[in-house]
Computed example of a mutant assay.
Amino acid sequence: MRKLINRLLGGRQAMQGKAIVPQVAAAPRVPEANHFDIGLKDAGYDGWYRVDSGELYEGFAIRAEDVVVDVGCGDGGCALFCANRGAHVIVADIDAAKVAATTQRLSGTPAREVQGVVSDANPLLLPDGVASKIISMEVLEHVDDPAQFLRELVRIGKPGAQYLLTVPDPVAEQLQVGLAPEVYFQKPNHVRIIQRDQFEQLVADAGLVIERHSYYGFYWSLWWLFFWVCKVDLADPQHPLLNSWTRTWEALLGSPQGSLVRQRMNALMPKCQAIVARKP
């Protein structure tokens, strides 16, 4: 730090009879970083995308005999994992373009069958008891009526069906207030911040039995805070601050006690919370 301060100030030297003008050196260029690759690696430590065990998330295994419904599929990352396991995959989203793109993305996979449904989930255009695995990631914070939305998810599940539900964690969300653009907390984006106990209550009230409630993604909590102030394009988020943070986290993941630090930070300020639940 001392060397950095000296460099930024150009090594001030008093010169008799002359004004002292600090010479500010150019900030060192931080190499570009692949933020999303590091984020994916971090997710693996948190229990995501376990190819060897077939678990999309720890405790949520996908098998070829499963019928999986991904509600709010977005770009289809989770659906792709399930398709590669040979499952029958149904992707649903309010955005017709995303449904079309995701079904096309899955068309060359080992999936038994791929279907696309354009729906706002009020109601879901699917029959009762169709699915053995239901996924809904980062959707509840968007919908007008979370209880109604969950009822639809429960309706389409078979008895014994398993659910993977995620929402942003309230700690990270609250920190973004005043930093994120106002539209971040406006419809059709995040219209509510879901507290941890509230999330559990919503799931239990829908008639599901909670098997696991976990927290992950501290890396992304800070990344997004930095992203808002860097004002760069999300398609190519290269900035010295973001790159430094990603390189720091990458170094931590490779350090002897990195796992312990990561677990502690996930408990303190996770980006997301996840519930794995089952329909009785």
Rank of each mutant, 00 (worst) to 15 (best):
D46A: 08
I20P: 00
W48A: 01
Y49I: 01
W48G: 01
G44L: 07
I20D: 04
V30L: 08
H35S: 01
P31N: 12
G47I: 04
V30P: 00
D52E: 15
P31R: 13
F36R: 09
Q23T: 10
R50I: 04
L40K: 14
A19M: 01
D52V: 14
D42Y: 09
A43K: 10
F36T: 07
I38Q: 03
I38W: 06
I20W: 10
K18A: 14
G44S: 02
V51E: 14
H35L: 07
P28W: 07
H35N: 04
A26E: 10
A26M: 05
E32L: 13
H35I: 05
Y49F: 15
V24W: 08
K18V: 14
A33Q: 07
Q23P: 01
I38G: 00
R29T: 12
D37T: 11
A27Q: 14
A33M: 08
A27N: 07
P28R: 05
G47D: 14
I38V: 12
G47W: 07
V24N: 06
H35G: 00
A25G: 10
R29I: 15
V24C: 05
K41I: 08
R50M: 09
A26S: 07
P28K: 04
K18M: 12
E32V: 11
L40T: 07
P31E: 15
P31C: 13
G39E: 14
V51L: 14
D42R: 00
D37S: 15
D46F: 02
A43V: 02
K18S: 13
I38E: 05
G47E: 12
W48R: 04
R29Y: 07
I38C: 00
R50S: 10
Y49C: 02
A19K: 09
Y45K: 03
D37N: 14
F36G: 03
Q23A: 13
R50Q: 10
A43Q: 07
G39C: 05
L40I: 10
E32T: 10
P22W: 05
D52Y: 15
A33D: 08
L40D: 05
G39R: 01
D37L: 15
K41R: 11
R29S: 12
A19L: 02
P31H: 15
K18C: 08
N34V: 15
W48E: 05
P22V: 08
V24Y: 05
R29G: 05
A27P: 03
